[in-house]
Design a protein around this nucleic acid. Structure first.
Length: 215
DNA sequence: TTCCCGCGCT
DNA sequence: AGCGCTGGAA
């Protein structure tokens, strides 16, 4: 069976069992981008608390956050963990927005992905996953986001080696699937839901997993 | 005690 | 390749 039909079959199975994900959680592209940095190696519940703190302070705004002293920003995002380093990373991202987009994230929509992606990746603290989350979920570029869940799920299904690198894993999907923003959006969301709820790190709950037919 | 939608530095 | 970064929920 071709990798295309296998990957599409897995997608269809997850969507049928779980329903649409309505990702990324967040009301604006800017909130999505900040959430993408905050959720690095961190439970989303804790990210929500950090985002709520920023909102309650009336500071979910690129210029306002950029002017905020780092210790104050760190204090607001404390529940998300790694708060000192993430405060710097958010600031680096905001500096990029100031330099390249006059603080207007959405002005980066509709350009050339091959040109924009390396510039986003050059931000210190924004690696491939965070960059691709911003590009896909905030800016609607057709790029497939992969993460540790993706590696684990494909590894356990014999579709990839566990130590495959980011680009290799991403290529498995992007070589097999059409460039479709809505498909990439929903597929990654479904993998994260399966990774967190069934394909756990320690013990997979395979019997009840939506991907059981593909094991 | 484990794990969480990583990343950069050494 | 290994390690520090961190709080919060299960």
């Amino acid at each position: 069976m071709s990798s295309h039909s296998t990957l599409m079959g897995m997608y269809d199975a997850m969507l049928a069992k779980l329903g649409p994900s309505r990702w990324w959680p967040g009301d604006t592209p800017f909130e999505i981008a900040i959430g993408a940095i905050l959720t690095q190696n961190t439970n989303w519940k804790n990210v929500e608390k950090a985002l709520d703190n920023i909102k309650d302070a009336g500071l979910l705004d690129a210029r306002a956050l950029h002017e905020l002293p780092l210790p104050r920003l760190a204090e607001l995002i404390r529940p998300a963990g790694y708060y000192n380093i993430k405060a710097k990373r958010i600031h680096n991202f905001l500096q990029f927005l100031k330099d390249e987009a006059e603080f207007d994230l959405e002005s980066l929509k509709g350009g050339d992905l091959a040109d924009l992606r390396p510039r986003v990746l050059s931000i210190n603290g924004v690696g491939p996953e965070t960059a691709d989350c911003i590009l896909l979920y905030a800016l609607d570029y057709p790029v497939f986001v992969v993460d540790t869940y993706t590696a684990r799920i494909l590894g356990r299904h014999g579709l990839a080696w566990e130590d495959i690198d980011y680009h290799g894993l991403q290529s498995i999907f992007m070589d097999a699937l059409p460039d479709d923003v809505a498909l990439f959006n929903e597929y990654h969301a479904l993998l994260v839901r399966v990774g967190g709820n069934w394909c756990r790190k320690k013990e997979g709950l395979c019997a009840a997993c939506p991907l059981k037919p593909f094991l």
